[in-house]
């Protein structure tokens, strides 16, 4: 029961993760495999970020004024954050709840590294396509098999 009301985010993340894994396992097309891999990757990002969420929290951008030089920025920050809560908490500063910034940092870099590795994968796919003439996995295997047999026959 607690899964339905308190932990439903994990259930959805697992469903998405397994969908991505299924695409990686089942599909024979290399580009579709990479798309499945990126679905899997994104669901891992979701897992981390949902763990760092604090209910009633704000984005981890500090609202309080922290020095005279940045005082002019404060209206912008207040508007950017949840406006009602910010005004309510402006009197009692220490009471503002922020979501956990640590998962955000980890995932932020992971996203950019993810696209860089995706580009490597796609480059490999393009080279495979140019060499074999196909990007279907079973056809590539058959070509390899044939090539090996002919190599030993000569």
């Amino acid at each position: 029961m607690s899964i339905i009301f308190e932990q439903y985010n994990y259930a959805i993340v697992i469903i998405l993760m397994m969908t991505g894994l299924y695409v990686v396992f089942a599909s024979r097309n290399l580009i579709k495999k990479l798309v499945g891999l990126s679905i899997f990757q994104t669901s891992v990002f979701l897992l981390y970020i949902t763990i760092g969420k604090v209910s009633g929290g704000q984005p981890p951008i500090i609202v309080e004024s922290h020095g005279a030089d940045h005082a002019s920025l404060e209206p912008v920050l207040v508007a950017a954050a949840n406006a009602k809560d910010a005004v309510a908490h402006a009197a009692s500063k220490s009471d503002v709840l922020y979501s956990n910034p640590l998962p955000h940092v980890l995932i932020l870099t992971a996203i950019v590294v993810g696209v860089a590795t995706l580009a490597i994968g796609l480059a490999l796919v393009v080279r495979i396509r140019e060499t074999y003439g196909t990007i279907e996995e079973d056809e590539i295997e058959a070509l390899d098999y044939q090539y090996n047999l002919e190599g030993t026959a000569d």
Partner: peptide, 12 residues
């Protein structure tokens, strides 16, 4: 430094 953003996003 003051809002969402940074080198990664700006580069992209």
């Amino acid at each position: 430094d003051f809002g969402p953003g940074g080198g990664f996003q700006a580069g992209v």
